[in-house]
Design a protein around this nucleic acid. Structure first.
Lengths: 218, 218, 218, 218
DNA sequence: AATGAATGAGATTTCATTCAT
DNA sequence: AATGAATGAAATCTCATTCAT
C-alpha cells in the first residue's frame, strides 16, 4: 500500500539505527559530505534538505541545528574549500621556485584539479544562481589572489596586477579541464591541449625570450 | 463547482494592461527576452514562469499557449542560438582563408562572443542541472563541430580529430571571456590575456614554424 | 520548435479549411457527436471544450455560441437521448401486445441497448459527478416511466407502482449488459446470463403460473 | 527568494486547529474518511486535495506526507476494500454449505452490500474514468473470483467458468441495489425486487429441478 | 456572426523550515 | 538536545470562458 509504515512505531525502531553520534565534528562532516554528493548529482536548487539529511544519517531537525538554512550548507562547502586552498598552496609554494616554467604550467592546474576542485559540488555551487554571486565572487577572488601570490613567489619582480591576470587565466584553464573531464566523450588529449596551451601562455608571460625557446624545444 | 466564477473581476483587471500586441511574433519575442533576462538573473531553476510572464507583460495562460512548459522556453533559447550559429559561421567562412592566424585567433572568439553567446541566459542554461545535459551536450557538440569545420576550411589538411580538439579549446577560451566580461571587476586586459593565449595556441597548432615566428614578431 | 505557427497567418490559412457551414443544425450535430466521442473516451470532467471544438471542426468561439457552457453540452446529450427514447418506445409499443413474455424479456433490453444507450458517453454522463444528479435523475425517471408505460400496455391490469419497479429492474439489467459489453474479457455468455435472468424475472412478474411453466419448458 | 517567509502568520493559524492527533493511524483514517466523503459527493475528478485536507482537519502538506498523490488516495480506498473482501468472505464461507439456495441468494448480496460496498466512494471510483481502468478491473475481477469461490464451495461440481458467470450476475445485482439505495425516491420494495430476481436466477443456476420447486413453493 | 488569442482562477504537488514532544 | 510530523507558501500547469477584431 502507499502508506509508509514508519510512523506509529517510530520510537521503537529508532534504537535499531546506528547510535547517533552527538559528536559535532563527525556529524557536520557527514552532513557536508552528503550535501556535496546530493548537490553534485542534482544541483543546488534541486538538492533537498530531506535527502541530505537522509544520506548523512541525520534527522532533519538535527541538520537544522548545525546549519540554520540551506544556504549555509552551500556557504560552508565553499568556505571550507577556501580554507583548504590556503593549506594546499602554502605547501606548494615551498618548492615552487625550483620548478621550470613548464613544470609550473603543469603542476599548478594539477594542484587545483586534484586538491581544490575535488568535489563536483563546488563547481555546481559556483555556477549556481544569482543569490550566490557574493560567495562565488569571494571564492573566485580568493583563488585568483592565492595563485597570484604563488606566481609572485615564483617571479618576485612580477607586478601584482599582472600576477592576478595570469592567475585568472590559469584558473580558467583549470576549470575548463575540470569541466571536460566529466564529459561523456572525454579524451585524454583534451587535457593535453589545455596543458599545452597553459605552457605556451605561462612561458610567454613568465619566461625571458631565451627561456621560452628552450622550454618549447625541449 | 466546475464552473469557475471569475468573471466579475475580469473586466476591471483587463484594461490595466498595455494594449495587446496582436502579433504573435512580437509576443513570443517579448517572452523570450523576459525569459532570458530572468534566467540570466536567477538561473533556470530559480526562474519562475510567473515572473517571466509578468516581465513580458503576458498572462500566465498566454505564456503557456506559446510555450507548453518551462523546458520549452529553455529549449527555444538554446535551439535558436544554434540556428543562429550556422548563419553566423557560414558568413564568417567566406572570408576565413584570407586571415592570418593571428587574425583568426582574434576573430573567432570575437565572432562567438558577439554573435552567438549574446544572451547571458544561454550560459546559465548550458550550466544548468541534470535534465539539460542532453540539450546542453547537443549544443556544445554543434558549436565544436561548427568551429572545427571553419578550421578545416582554413587548413584543409587538418585532421578532423585535431580540428575538433582545437575547436574545443577555442570554445573554452571564449566561454571564459564571456564569463569574465560579466564580472563586476572586469578589466579589458582580462580579454586581452585570453586573446593572446588563443593566439599563441592557434599559432602552435595551425602555424608552420616559420609562419609562427612571423606572426608573433609582427 | 515548440512554438506553433498557426498564429500570424491565421486569416490566410483559414480559407483552406472546409467552408464553415453556418447551418446551425449540422453544426450542432457535429458538436454533439464530437462531445459524445470525447466524453466517452475521457469522461465528462476530463473532456475539454477545446478538444470538442477541434474534433467537430468548430472554433471554440462558435462552440460557445451554440452551447453557453460545458454543462449545457452534457445536458443536451442527455435530453436528446430522452427525446429519442420516446420515439423508439412509441414504435415498440405498437407491436408489444403480440409478444410472448420471453420475447418481451429479450426485446426490451435489446431495444434499450441498441436504440437508447447507443452512445457510451450517455453512461459516462449518467455516472458523472454530483452536479449532474438532477439531469441524471430526470433521465432515469423518464426511462423508468417509459418502460413502465410499455409494461402497462402489455399487461393493462398491472398496477402503476409495480410497473415502475419492474421497469427499474429491467433498466438495471440493461445497464449491466451495456457495461459488460465494453469490458476486455467480455464473453457472449455474459449477455445470455442477464437475458436469462430477465426472462425469469419477467415471467415471475408478468406471467400466470401456467404461462411461466410453458415458457420455461419451451 | 529561496527562503520562504511564511513564519509570521504561522502561530496564529496553528492554534485554530483541533489538537493534533499524533497517532498516524487516526490521521490516515480521518483522511480516508474525508476522501471517501468528498469523492462520494463530487466524484474522483472533481474532488480536490485541498477539500479533502480541509475536511479531515489536515494541512495539505501533511496530506501529501501520507498519500504522495491523488491517485494513491483512490488506490488505497480500492485496495483496502479488496483486503476487507477476503476477510468477509472467508468468514461467510464457513457456514455457506448449510444455506438454502434462497438464503444464499439473500445473504450473498447482503454481505456485499453491508460489508464490501460500504463506501459510496468505492462505486464512484469504480466508475471513474480512464486511468482507473486497471485498478477497477483488478477489483472487479477480485470480487468476481471471490464470489465464484464461494459458489464453488456451495456446489462443488459447479464448473469454474459457470461459477464466474453467476458471480458476475450476483455482483451486478448487488451494485444495482447499492445504487438504488442511495437514490432520493428509494423504496424498500426496490431492494426486494432485486432480491427476488437474484433468488430466481440462483435457483435456476444452482438448483436441481426438485430443489427449485421446493424452494419456490416454500 | 465568426474567430481564436487572451484571461486568470484554481488544481496538484514540493520542500524549506518550525516546534511540540 | 534530538526527533520528525506538521506547516503552508509557492511553483507549475490547465482549461472554461470572454471579447476585441
Amino acid at each position: 500500500m502507499s502508506i509508509p509504515s514508519h510512523k506509529s512505531s517510530a520510537k521503537k525502531t529508532r534504537s535499531v539505527h546506528a547510535p547517533q553520534r552527538s559528536n559535532g565534528k563527525l556529524r557536520v562532516a557527514a552532513i557536508l559530505e552528503a550535501a556535496a554528493a546530493v548537490i553534485a548529482e542534482k544541483g543546488y536548487e534541486a538538492a533537498t534538505m530531506a535527502e541530505i539529511a537522509a544520506r548523512s544519517g541525520t534527522q532533519i531537525g538535527s541538520l537544522y541545528r548545525f546549519f540554520p538554512n540551506k544556504q549555509s550548507l552551500g556557504d560552508t562547502i565553499i568556505v571550507s574549500a577556501r580554507e583548504n586552498l590556503e593549506v594546499v598552496f602554502d605547501n606548494f609554494d615551498a618548492g615552487v621556485k625550483a620548478l621550470s616554467i613548464r613544470a609550473l604550467a603543469d603542476n599548478l592546474p594539477a594542484l587545483l584539479l586534484e586538491q581544490v576542485f575535488t568535489k563536483p559540488a563546488l563547481l555546481k555551487l559556483l555556477d549556481a544562481s544569482e543569490d550566490w554571486s557574493v560567495k562565488r565572487e569571494e571564492f573566485r577572488i580568493a583563488v585568483v589572489r592565492r595563485i597570484a601570490k604563488t606566481l609572485t613567489i615564483y617571479r618576485s619582480n612580477l607586478p601584482k596586477k599582472s600576477a592576478e591576470h595570469i592567475a585568472l587565466v590559469v584558473l580558467a584553464n583549470t576549470k575548463a579541464m575540470v569541466t571536460h573531464q566529466k564529459l561523456p566523450d572525454f579524451a585524454l588529449r583534451t587535457l593535453e591541449e589545455f596543458r599545452d596551451m597553459t605552457r605556451l601562455y605561462l612561458q610567454s608571460r613568465l619566461g625571458s625570450s631565451m627561456s621560452v625557446k628552450k622550454d618549447i624545444s625541449s
